[in-house]
Design a protein around this nucleic acid. Structure first.
Length: 376
RNA sequence: CAUCUAUCUAGCAUU
């Protein structure tokens, strides 16, 4: 059974759901880990509904079954479902609580993350690291530092987490000082420091650090692409791209965005059509690129042909119309989109403001509060 | 006593 379970998971991790399924069906004497494994295979393949169906028929669910399902919902941002499942499960353990801390944190619910942290019966190192990360992701580097200082033990993840708390929130010199003080460093430490320079617009610092790195991976290369692109140096960005041993989707996206944001629409398009795979970010990026160049019908076509649309997809097109002064089209989209968020309202408001309709902008701002949205 | 399954840190997208 253990051998079968291992194989089911291995195939799933390589994207071979069909093989996982076949092996699962042939598994003799299935245990709960077998069921959990195939359920997570479906999660991995993005088939959340089917995963849920499997969850429902698992004969003897254990805490891993429940936690896996909670985590699956959390990963795709279905925080209410995660929450509901978490509330109804029999015996959550420390992993389940940790999952919820991350879920809340990634959805901007720092208050809920902290509450969970405070209420959980026991904490482990991952709990503390998750809390550092929660503060990092929600703009609170000082709180991240407080947690870091208070935690009973630390590991390299804690260190890297605190460094990125500084780096992500504009405290570049603190990030670099901390990086310099670290006795152990791994590739993630180096990449985090590189990202700190890059997001600070310090191309020189980034380049020097990059040249000093003991090893590189696709993340470090991509960070350099972004660093060059951010300074308008798209040719050097392209050189970095060409020097990479292998390209993943994010590397392509970074190059595409670099071209797009520096006004090279046809280069961006060329990359777009040559990409071996695309994701939501790719489509949003090309939509925004079309919008910036007033190619609104192309932008609209992208939205219409997307396999899945999120609120962000709609926001991107709304912003496209709004920034080009086409407020009536923006308004139409605004009314028909399934689910607005703060970003949607922001796009509409700035569109009206830019078009010189200050009154409409203010009306919308007031209306937004009435609809229960908190301005950011 | 032990093998398989769930949780933490780095790069890309709208405003």
């Amino acid at each position: 059974v253990v051998a079968y379970n291992t194989m089911v998971v291995a195939y799933a991790q390589n994207g071979h759901l069909e093989s996982s399924k076949l092996l699962f069906d042939r598994t003799p004497q299935k245990n709960t880990a077998s069921w959990n494994g195939i359920m997570n295979a479906y999660v991995q393949a993005g088939k959340l509904d089917l995963a849920r169906k499997i969850f429902n028929i698992i004969p003897c669910k254990d805490v891993v079954s429940w936690s896996s399902m909670v985590s699956a919902y959390a990963q795709v941002g279905h925080i209410e479902e995660a929450d509901a499942l978490f509330a109804s499960m029999p015996n959550p353990n420390v992993v389940t609580y940790n999952t919820m801390i991350m879920a809340y944190s990634q959805n901007g619910r720092l208050d809920r993350a902290k509450k969970t942290f405070d209420e959980m019966p026991e904490r482990d190192l991952i709990t503390w690291n998750a809390m550092v990360s929660a503060y990092a992701q929600n703009g609170r580097p000082d709180n991240a530092k407080l947690v870091f200082d208070k935690m009973p033990q630390r590991n390299l993840v804690s260190m890297n987490g605190l460094m990125s708390a500084f780096g992500l929130n504009g405290e570049t010199s603190k990030a670099i000082d901390f990086f310099d003080s670290m006795e152990q460093k791994d590739l993630i430490s180096w990449s985090s420091a590189l990202a700190a320079y890059s997001q600070d617009g310090n191309l020189d610092g980034a380049r020097k650090l990059f040249d000093k790195m003991p090893e590189w991976n696709v993340v470090s290369f991509t960070t350099m692409i972004t660093a060059y692109s951010g300074k308008g140096r798209v040719e050097e960005a392209k050189l970095v791209f060409d020097s990479m041993p292998e390209h993943d989707l994010i590397a392509y996206n970074a190059l595409l965005v670099g071209y797009a944001q520096n006004g090279y629409l046809s280069d961006a398009e060329r990359i777009f059509f040559s990409m071996p795979a695309k994701n939501l970010e790719t489509l949003h990026a090309i939509m925004a690129a079309y919008a910036q160049h007033m190619h609104l019908s192309e932008a609209k076509t992208v939205l219409n042909t997307m396999p899945v649309r999120t609120t962000l997809s709609w926001n991107t097109l709304i912003a496209a119309y709004a920034l080009n002064g086409h407020m009536q089209e923006a308004r139409v989209l605004f009314e028909i989109l399934p689910k607005a968020d703060v970003g949607t309202w922001n796009s509409m408001i700035s569109g009206f403001a830019k078009a010189g309709h200050g009154k409409s902008a203010i009306d919308l701002f007031l209306e937004m509060a009435v609809e229960g949205f908190v301005p950011d």
